[in-house]
Amino acid sequence: MTVDLDAQHHFSDGIVVLTERRVLARAPGENEWRDYAFLPGMTLEHHDHAGVGRLELMLPERRLAAWHFTLGMNLLAMRVIDQFQSRLQSHFDGTPAEVDDQTVCPSCKAPLEPDQDVCPVCTKVIHTPPSTWTLFRLWRFARPYRGQLLAGFLLTLLGTAASLVPPYLTMPLMDNVLIPYQNGQQIDTGLVALYLLGLLGAALLAWGLTWAKTYILALVSERIGADLRTSTYEHLLRLSLEYFGGKRTGDLMARIGSESDRICVFLSLHLLDFATDVLMILMTSAILFSINPWLALVTLVPLPIIVWLIHVVRDRLRTGFEKIDRVWGEVTNVLADTIPGIR
């Protein structure tokens, strides 16, 4: 197995090899190999503390060697201990040792078949793009808040409609007030005040509806995010120790922390903006067609091109965000394995 920490818990590569008669080891940061022949009473013990694992080769009276590693190597360490006990017993009593010929992926520690050279789990994670339909799986978390979500949708609809009132008032304001005033005609001050009050009222109504919509849906999104984090944490508690031995601490922390926060931000901000923009486009199109159908068609001609450009840019941005997520997972993993061991 590979060990990745030296005696001072600095990152450095070493290796421990188990044979039929002895243990060979090259400690991290050293060039010389050391061998430890099997002796009666010899044991290989496993310990872990604060994100750091340790293998100790022991005799009844003293310790022969110790190797340190991050918990990402924990699964391999447990397999080495099992093989050590089997081969030590075989060395002294002559019984054939059970050979563990199952190989695992060095990245995710998933079992590999004898004829598999590429891990199917890692290949699927790296090469399978995330599907947008996966977001619909959040509905089971949103179902308890469907009343608030319906209220937020209605407020979104009303707020968008209120924001479209000023264009209707602007047209008669231009025709009945500004153009006649520019031509030197007498204007009705009461009519001017009525139009201006209508514009002010529409703006205040749109602001109030938008604020109420944002408050309700942001509150719902935070509650959904809290339920999602709680469900993820409870699911992790039900998993076996072998699962945690094959996973990096930083990846698990990122799933509970930053990735759940991104889902909350998506639900509270980006999804609301997307819904508002779609409603705005639909209502504006309806108004344009009611005024002049041909003018509406000319105005909406660039819309398919804009949608296509958004799709192209989204794919490129998604690739960049996936790379950022992997790098952030590496950083979090190093910090989670290093900082807890600092005293």
Rank of each mutant, 00 (worst) to 15 (best):
H9K: 14
F11H: 14
V17C: 08
L18D: 00
L18C: 03
L24W: 14
R26T: 08
Y36R: 10
L44P: 00
H46F: 14
D48E: 15
H49F: 14
G53S: 03
P60A: 14
A66T: 01
W67Y: 01
T70N: 04
L71S: 00
L76S: 08
H91D: 15
P96N: 07
A97N: 06
T103Q: 15
P106W: 05
S107L: 07
K109M: 06
D115C: 03
V118L: 08
C119M: 03
K124M: 10
K124C: 08
H127A: 13
P129A: 14
P129M: 12
S131T: 08
W133M: 13
T134L: 07
L135Q: 08
L138E: 02
L149N: 03
A151C: 11
A151D: 10
F153K: 00
S163I: 07
M171F: 15
N176V: 07
V192F: 04
L200N: 12
G201I: 02
A206R: 02
R223A: 12
R223F: 00
I224A: 00
L228K: 01
L236Q: 06
R238C: 09
R238I: 05
L239G: 13
L241W: 15
F244N: 11
R248M: 12
D251R: 12
L252C: 10
L252H: 05
M253D: 13
A254Y: 01
L271H: 03
A275H: 06
A275L: 05
A275T: 10
V278I: 11
S285C: 15
F289S: 06
S290A: 13
I291C: 13
N292G: 03
T299H: 07
H311T: 11
R318L: 14
G320D: 15
E322N: 11
I324Q: 11
A336E: 04
P340S: 05
G341F: 10
I342H: 15
